[in-house]
């Protein structure tokens, strides 16, 4: 390592930069959006959910987490506190008061929404996250460096981090049961739901069914499919009898989450002009100030003579 002096380091780093530049120019042949028009989704009908939490049990079981006895999940005491998905519970069900009928509370399941334009994918600096053709947003532990940018970027605050683990902690979130759904199966939570409050199917078909339900039963449903357009559309969508914001589903506009950050990033670095201009400007200032010092020095030296 003794050979690494300043000159060699500069040579090495410049070579690396050009190499990566070459790599990116090759990658430009890849499609810009590989989402399938038949991609799958899940329609969550909160008016049917009974809050049995079987989905939580099924999720843990199918992901190899310690699930325990399913009967314990039927205890409704947990609803006293609002819960969020955790590193070993990718999905949680919460309960809200029903203003229309106090005897039937509203239960809402939370998990990764599997955005069509995921912010986590955009924010991940090593490409550990990816949006798959059939809708699933998955995470690759082999690539992850644990920066947790995804956690900050997610508009639904879904990715979680295994803080307890000192060595090789994982970023955890619902993977849409990729193992099952990539082989034509259905997610574990959808399979176990006793009332089919979770309906798995092609996203376009789900939107059609959701519209039909709203039309047939305008008193039962708010005329809004949460996730159809939010943050550019999500694979998981919600129907509810009350406003989505009352169910702690964050209010989002139709703009994609990475759309804003990416446009800023791309704008800043467009054709290298802005950074070059900035550095040139800084360099100019440096040069001028340096020059001024030299002139002063010369003047001082001349005066001294």
């Amino acid at each position: 390592m003794k050979n690494i002096n300043r000159r060699n380091f500069l040579k090495f780093s410049s070579a690396l930069t050009f190499a990566s530049a070459g790599l990116t120019s090759n990658a430009k042949a890849a499609p810009n959006n590989i989402l399938s028009p038949d991609r799958m989704g899940v329609l969550v009908d909160t008016t049917h959910c009974v809050g049995c939490r079987n989905c939580e049990w099924a999720c843990k079981t199918s992901h190899g987490h310690d699930a325990g006895d399913i009967e314990k999940y039927h205890n409704r005491e947990v609803f006293k506190e609002f819960r969020r998905p955790k590193d070993h519970s990718f999905t949680v069900v919460n309960e809200f008061e029903n203003p229309k009928n106090e005897l039937i509370p509203i239960n809402v399941k939370y998990q990764c929404m599997h955005c069509d334009k995921p912010a986590c994918v955009s924010a991940c600096i090593v490409g550990a996250f990816q949006k798959n053709e059939m809708g699933q947003v998955t995470w690759d532990g082999g690539k992850c460096i644990g920066c947790r940018y995804c956690m900050v970027a997610c508009p639904f605050q879904i990715p979680t981090f295994e803080y307890e683990k000192a060595i090789e902690p994982n970023i955890n979130k619902c993977d849409f049961c990729f193992e099952r759904t990539s082989k034509g199966g259905i997610p574990a939570c959808v399979e176990i739901c006793p009332v089919e409050a979770l309906m798995f199917g092609p996203r376009t078909e789900l939107i059609r069914v959701a519209r039909q339900r709203i039309k047939r039963n305008p008193e039962r449903y708010k005329n809004h499919i949460y996730g159809e357009k939010e943050v550019g559309g999500t694979s998981w969508m919600y129907l509810s009898s009350v406003d989505a914001s009352q169910l702690k589903l964050p209010k989002h506009k139709d703009k994609t989450a990475p759309g804003v950050s990416e446009s800023i990033q791309h704008g800043i670095f467009a054709y290298f002009v802005p950074p070059l201009a900035l550095y040139a400007w800084l360099g100019g200032i440096m040069w001028i100030s340096k020059r001024r010092k030299e002139i002063i020095q010369e003047v001082v030296e001349e005066e001294a003579k």
Partner: peptide
């Protein structure tokens, strides 16, 4: 962005 699609 390109890396992301490359992996996909």
């Amino acid at each position: 962005k390109e890396m992301k699609y490359l992996s996909q």
